[in-house]
Amino acid sequence: MKRILVAVLAALGLALAQALVVEVEGSLEDVEARALKALEAAGLQVDRVLNLGEQVRQVTGPGFPEYRLLVLKPEKGSVAAVSKNPMAAIVLPPTVFVTGEGERYLVGTFDPHLLFGMLGVYEGAVRDLGLRLQAALGRLGLVRRVAPAVMPDPQSGLMPALLYRVPQASVEEVVLLVETELTSRGLNLLPHVQVGPVTVIMPCKSEWARIMFLTQPAGGFAAPCRFFAMPMGEDVLVGAIEPMLMTIMPGVPGSEAVGMLQEARQVMSEVLESVGGKPYRPGQ
């Protein structure tokens, strides 16, 4: 695990892409229907469709595009990934986003080769999941890779996830505490999802979504934001996606989104600390 963590940022900078996207022409309803059909043809089932665009506009006002999130049902690839490395829960179960206006939309998801590769889980059922995600997008058109805009600093110590360890606790207790804290801070919550040994919590804050996705729509592969919890002996490992990973995406460096991501990181760290979590690094 230590070797994987050392290589994380190098992998982020050297890999081909953070996100896979395809441009599709048609109405929003047509593009969404075609995306659902393509996922089904690739053997992937959608658990829920979230109208993020409408949610954001209701809170922050007009000026935000159509934005749908197709959250997939957990399957054996997702379970295999989190069972081998719980940090994979930062984007699992996978989300396919559909965003745009008029008659032109962008459909995309994360680059499984990059994410699963850097976490050391890209094999077997996990590789199959990645290939099916790419195949689904390929049914919609020519797939384009969104590469990082800047090279990250390998000495920064940045990990894909914020990780904390809650001593002498149960997963059920920690999940309830995390959800309560998120709600009290104004984040909307979906019902949590069980992915193998990991409980995944998916919150969203409309103000953050507006700033992030107006700056870089392809960041939707990580929406809704993921928190997660799993048993670790008599303790609980609890974590969340590291928001600062988004700062290397095109259009983000130097933008308003950087401040928003810093704010999100502060809030997320406070939530994890408030449930009794102590900072944790694999190998400790």
Rank of each mutant, 00 (worst) to 15 (best):
V31N: 05
A229K: 09
G43S: 05
S156D: 04
L106N: 07
V178D: 00
E32A: 10
V24R: 05
M230D: 00
S156I: 02
L9Q: 09
E40R: 11
A41E: 15
S274M: 03
P86G: 10
Q134K: 12
M212T: 14
G53K: 05
L261I: 02
V107R: 08
A42K: 00
K2E: 15
F227S: 05
S206F: 03
R132K: 12
I248K: 03
V46G: 04
V6L: 13
G108A: 01
P243S: 08
A223W: 11
L72F: 05
M87W: 04
M87H: 05
Q262F: 03
T109W: 01
M159K: 09
M212I: 15
S184R: 15
K205F: 02
G276K: 04
K76S: 14
L140A: 10
E123G: 13
H192R: 12
G251P: 06
P224K: 00
T183A: 15
A88V: 12
V143P: 00
S269V: 13
G186I: 01
M202E: 09
T199K: 08
V200Y: 01
V121G: 14
L106G: 00
A41T: 11
D235Q: 06
V121I: 13
V200A: 10
R145H: 14
V91H: 11
Y67F: 15
A125F: 09
R104C: 07
L69A: 04
Q266P: 01
G233I: 09
D235F: 05
L237Q: 09
L39K: 01
E123Y: 10
G233K: 11
T199R: 15
Q55I: 14
L36N: 01
V267E: 14
